[in-house]
């Protein structure tokens, strides 16, 4: 009886969309959470990343792969492809990186501040060659704060869906339709939290502004990097990354 309710069906679809488009399963990520890069491996990484932009290119590549999966997640979300094409693009352009940042909490070990990157867990030190240590620290801080909430897979799935389906994004054509979908997702999320006795999660979630600030910082850092290395574009970064961020 419970399973047949429309909201329960929506919950199952959101979770399935999310699981079908995850790069790595949470069990595998948990099993490998102490498999960290050694000091020597970090040095090798930093040597390899020495030519200007090598590490930026590498990270942009990984980020683009993650964003492609966010697009697939969006396509599987109930109601998303029924939105007009303009609004699908607006929501993804504004929200794809935010979704990746939320998903990062699954691949983050808060006990030693490392994140899963190219096969192992890496400390912020590995990303030093990017030349934006403060920004990387802010991302790690965000992941740590989300990690501390110990979200279930269903909760992360809804957080991602609600980051994406946000009727407050600028340039939406049919704001009402996006708001309707957002409302349905919010109701299903609240029902899930009530059922699992996790209602305390909502007030503890990081504010939306924090995600927005991280995305703005990413753009600022990218622009600063491009100013320093004007010859690198257009070939250095994946086409989708360029389309979204430059």
């Amino acid at each position: 009886k419970h399973d047949s309710s429309p909201m329960e069906q929506l919950t199952q679809k959101v979770l399935r969309s999310y699981q079908e488009t995850c790069q790595l399963g949470s069990e595998e990520l948990q099993l490998r959470r102490w498999d960290t890069f050694s000091r020597e491996e970090i040095c090798t990484y930093q040597r390899q990343a020495r030519p200007p932009g090598k590490m930026w290119q590498r990270c942009a590549g990984r980020l683009t792969e993650a964003i492609q999966l966010v697009v697939e997640f969006a396509k599987r979300l109930p109601g998303f492809l029924e939105l007009c094409q303009n609004d699908q693009i607006v929501l993804l352009k504004a929200g794809a990186l935010e979704v990746v940042l939320v998903q990062m909490c699954r691949a983050f070990n808060g006990e030693n501040r490392t994140v899963f990157f190219e096969g192992k867990y890496a400390s912020a030190e590995l990303f030093r060659a990017l030349g934006c240590h403060e920004f990387i620290s802010s991302i790690f801080d965000f992941a740590q704060s989300l990690c501390a909430l110990h979200c279930s897979e269903s909760e992360v799935a809804f957080l991602c869906a609600l980051v994406l389906v946000n009727a407050n994004r600028r340039w939406l054509q049919d704001q009402l339709q996006v708001a309707r979908l957002q409302g349905q997702l919010e109701v299903a999320f609240r029902l899930l939290l009530r059922r699992t006795q996790r209602e305390e999660l909502l007030p503890r979630l990081p504010p939306q502004a924090r995600l927005r600030a991280l995305c703005s910082q990413h753009l600022e850092q990218l622009q600063a990097f491009l100013r320093l290395h004007p010859g690198l574009l257009p070939s250095a970064f994946p086409p989708l990354y360029r389309e979204l961020f430059t």
């Binding site: 697009v71 697939e72 969006a74 396509k75 094409q85 389309e243």
Partner: peptide, 17 residues
């Protein structure tokens, strides 16, 4: 917007992925 985001638009249209 579609013109400016051809890759994103194509990914959204691609039903095989």
């Amino acid at each position: 917007l579609k013109e400016k985001h051809k890759i994103l638009h194509r990914l959204l249209q691609d039903s095989s992925s």
